[in-house]
Each structure stands twice: as structure tokens, then as C-alpha cells.
Computed example of a mutant assay.
Amino acid sequence: MHTIWKGSISFGLVNIPIRLHSATEDKDISLRTLHKECHTPIKYEKVCPVCNKQVEKEELVKAFEYTKGKFVVLEDKELEELKKVNEAKAVEIVDFVKIEEIDPIYFMRSYYLSPNEGGGKAYTLLRKALQESQKVGIAKIVIRSKEQLAVVRVFENTLLMETIYFPDEVRAASDVPNVPAETDVSKRELDTAIMLIDQLTTEFEPGKYHDDYRTALMELIESKKNGETVIPKERDVPESNVMDLMAALQASIDKTKGDEPKKPAAKKKRAAPAKVKKKA
């Protein structure tokens, strides 16, 4: 597994040399943009619209736009100095908390941590201490010139670091438009909805979920490579104009009755949250 960062984990006076490895990978299929006439990939050139000319790499500078059309230019040397001051190669654990206290909205990207030379015993100590205490570490780390808040926890006998958003990076739910206030829901509707949830409740098995769109896209690509004509199969789309909520709930329950019974979910302690993919 490729090492993307080397440094250490520190908590108190304990220092553990570690390596960082990406725990996930983006499986998106990348498509190129071609000229329709000759199938040549299109080049995207940097052009100044005022000077009306192409700009070379050495002519570019970085800047912050503090108001529309007004910039503060930052020199590469200034950015490098700032980076050196702040980019200590350490994952500094500043607090320990229960993972149940962290809402999944904060989670970003996962990284495996492996011990570097001489760090095996201290690595094992931290892993066992986290397991026994049922806590996770809240840490700070600088990755790619950006300070990140992170959670250090145990996943399948391996230390895992998950970067999380700072509180001011999470938008307030109260700002979401058109969220209804309390609406009258009948007891019958609520009971039926809960019944539907119960019938669809099972144990979480990650292996049974697949990216159907990516699979279909790869099949289309392979077929076109072989000169075959493919007509994509239409998927059943539920009607969106059902006005009778109770009828929709009952129809959903009736549909689940014909499916294979689901294995009831075992009551267990909350596992670490699964993340929707976001950009690191």
C-alpha cells in the first residue's frame, strides 16, 4: 500500500512514528473531452482575457479575492515560509472523546496509519488503549498545506485516521430553505411508516451494495469497444405524484412482503459512521 505521508502520532509525551496510507479510492470513471470531428483530446490553455494572450506558468501568481475584483497577491516564498512554520510532521492528539458524540456530517476522508521503524510497541499500546477505553482521539494534522481536524480510532485491528470538518466549515441546518415545521401526522401514518422501516431493517453488509451506474457505464464502454450497439435498459422509477401518503406506505409494505425476509439487525454498539464521499 502506497505511503503518502510520514510523521508521528503524539499524545501527552508518547510519540509514535507512523506512515499514512489512503484507506479509500475513487472509483469514478474519468471521461475525456474530444473534438467531435477528429477525436483529438481538447487542450485547456491558460489565457488572460485582458491581455488576450496565453500565460506561461512562470507568469502566474496566487492571490486571495477579498472583494469582487480586488486581490491580495501572495508570493510563493511567503506561502512556503508559512507552510514550514505550521507543517510539523505530527498527528497531535489533543483530546479523547466517545465517537457517538461526533455527528457523521463532520467526517471527510479516511487514512490507515501503520507504524514506522521502531514504532510497533507504542502503536500497539495506543490501539489497545483506544479499544479498552472505547474512545477515539481528536487530533490536528497539516496535509497539503491545510490544517485538518481528525479522528484517530481503531478499525479491524488497524489505527485509522479520519479527517473531519472544523465546526465553521459545516453550514447551519437552520439555513436550509423550505424545511417544514411540525406537520400534523396521524398515528396510523406514523405506525405504518415505522412498520415499513422495521420490514426494511437488516444488518449492515457493505459487500451487497454496488455502484450500478458505474457497472452499466463500463458495460457500455466495453460493448462500444467491440462494435456492438447497446440500448440502456430503463429502470423502474416510482411515481412522484402520489398524493395519498397512506396508500404509498401501504403499497411499500405490500411490496416488501414478496421479497426475501431480511435478517434482523443485531443490537450492538454504534459503529464508526460510514462516509458519503467528499473531497479531501
Rank of each mutant, 00 (worst) to 15 (best):
L60S: 06
R270V: 05
I164V: 13
T40L: 07
D184Y: 10
I164D: 09
V55G: 06
K269Y: 00
S30F: 11
D211V: 05
P115C: 05
A23P: 00
D76V: 04
Y165L: 15
E75N: 13
R32F: 07
M1A: 12
N52M: 03
A173I: 09
V73D: 07
P49V: 01
L79F: 09
K146P: 00
A216K: 13
T215V: 13
N157R: 07
F166P: 03
K277H: 10
G69Q: 08
F166D: 03
A88I: 12
A266G: 07
V85E: 14
V85I: 14
E203L: 14
E100Q: 08
E100H: 01
L200H: 03
A88S: 11
K187Y: 04
K262Q: 14
S114W: 05
S174N: 10
G137Y: 07
V91D: 05
E239L: 01
G258E: 08
E75K: 14
A251S: 11
F166H: 09
E239I: 00
K77D: 13
P273H: 03
A63G: 14
A129K: 02
E182R: 14
A265G: 13
K27N: 14
D26H: 02
E234A: 12
N178F: 13
V152N: 08
T163N: 03
M243T: 15
F107D: 05
I4Q: 04
V85F: 11
H2Q: 12
A193T: 10
I4C: 06
E132G: 03
K70D: 03
N15Q: 04
K128N: 14
H21T: 00
S186K: 07
G69T: 06
Y106M: 00
